[in-house]
Design a protein around this nucleic acid. Structure first.
Lengths: 225, 225
DNA sequence: ACACCGATTTAGATCCATCTAACCCTAAAC
DNA sequence: GTTTAGGGTTAGATGGATCTAAATCGGTGT
């Protein structure tokens, strides 16, 4: 059996691998989990012993297939919970992350199955992030690009808002930046700030780079007249 | 902040106080939580330091008001979860206990409130046990008596089935012993076994003392013709 | 090539919850 | 009243997750 903490490390590594590919450094994990690097080093040793990560001293880790499966299970729990909380308990998308983070390690397989059933096997959570399927096959994580990669005049559809800060999410929601909406890019500043107009609201929104980076979009399938 | 484990100790003490009154002995807690007595002793010392229990060395503990409040909060979480799981996620009453035990320490106050709201502030859980109210005032725990205290010919209504074993609960359900049903007492054997006929089923049920003790009932309000 | 800086690992300590073994208290039996 | 059996507590160890301080690695720049 794995501890909650081990699951958190595996989840963190999985998510970092999704962002930057390849080997994940000790310090990146330490930042993500808010612990010190020696703590991470000793945890990585334990995970390595259990065959959940491949480690090269001083050069970072990658998940083994087994480690990835565990991470996917945790992510599935997390995102199913997020979906359930918004659908059935009237949570706002800005609030679900913290609650799901607390519960994800403590639900049974049975609970997972019942929640998935109640939601009719959803494919994405309220932030547009894909929910790993019950068989825990690694999902495609290449859907969408950061909105920062587009240019003035492009029209895009928001696929995913991969931020967890409730304040940021509330802000985005009130300015019409949510999965499914269309965004017309008005400006991409050299320092990464994106200004856009949402199909949902009248006002324009400006997203500082840190935020914009988490807004993943796809080009509008059909050009508009 | 209290650890999950501390909450478990307080809940266990609360429940033991409900059964046998007064001081709770180290060994009773050790049995309930499946740990050794030295472990309990050292935990009780910590709880005493925090003002959650009153301890008299070699003679057991009682909850302080503060400790009782914590216990009631945990019990409220537990029973609300049990009610929610049966009402909204199609769980059977025999299955909810284990799941609620895992989740009870990890839900937020917000989650608790939303669940209570979705259920319209229920007063009892699926086993008929009272759910402490949101203000955490100690509820009356004298409702009902053990079915073992009645005699042949008595007709009673099941108020609560305070057992947690899924096997026992399934057995009871298939034999018509659930909160709300009427039971006609057919025999109370000298060694405590109770035989009764449920208003729900044709067969008679026999309950060995250990089980019967957990079936709490009240005399039928109106005598039948 | 070499030195240096930043990141990583090693070393050693702490706190929590748990255990076993050994000792000791309380209450019941005589 | 003494004795004794059974349960409670003390002592000391373990394993998990964390920390700080100190040593060490590795890539960068000259």
């Amino acid at each position: 059996m794995l501890s909650d903490v081990m699951e958190d490390y595996l989840k963190a590594i999985y998510q970092l691998q999704g962002e930057h590919e390849e080997r994940i450094k000790t310090s990146a994990i330490a930042d993500a989990l808010e612990v010190t690097s020696p703590t991470v080093t000793s945890m990585l040793e334990k995970l390595e012993e259990r065959g959940l990560v491949d480690r090269e001293k001083y050069r970072g880790v990658t998940l083994t297939d087994e480690g990835e499966t565990v991470a996917l299970e945790v992510v599935r729990h997390h995102r199913l919970l997020e979906a359930y909380l918004t659908e059935h308990l009237d949570y706002d998308w800005s609030e679900v992350h913290a609650e799901a983070d607390r519960l994800e390690h403590h639900i049974s397989e049975d609970f997972e199955a019942r929640v998935a059933d109640a939601l009719d096997e959803p494919e994405v959570d309220p932030h547009g992030s894909p929910i790993p399927s019950a068989d825990l096959e690694p999902p495609d994580r290449s859907a969408g690009k950061s909105v920062t990669e587009f240019a003035e005049g492009d029209v895009v559809v928001v696929e995913e808002v991969a931020d967890h800060d409730p304040e940021v999410l509330s802000y985005l929601a009130t300015h019409g930046v949510e999965p499914g909406v269309e965004l017309e890019i008005l400006e991409v500043a050299p320092f990464g700030m994106v200004t856009a107009r949402s199909s949902e609201t009248v006002d324009d929104v400006s997203l500082p780079e840190g935020v914009a980076h988490h807004v993943r979009v796809t080009p509008l399938p059909q050009a508009e007249s």
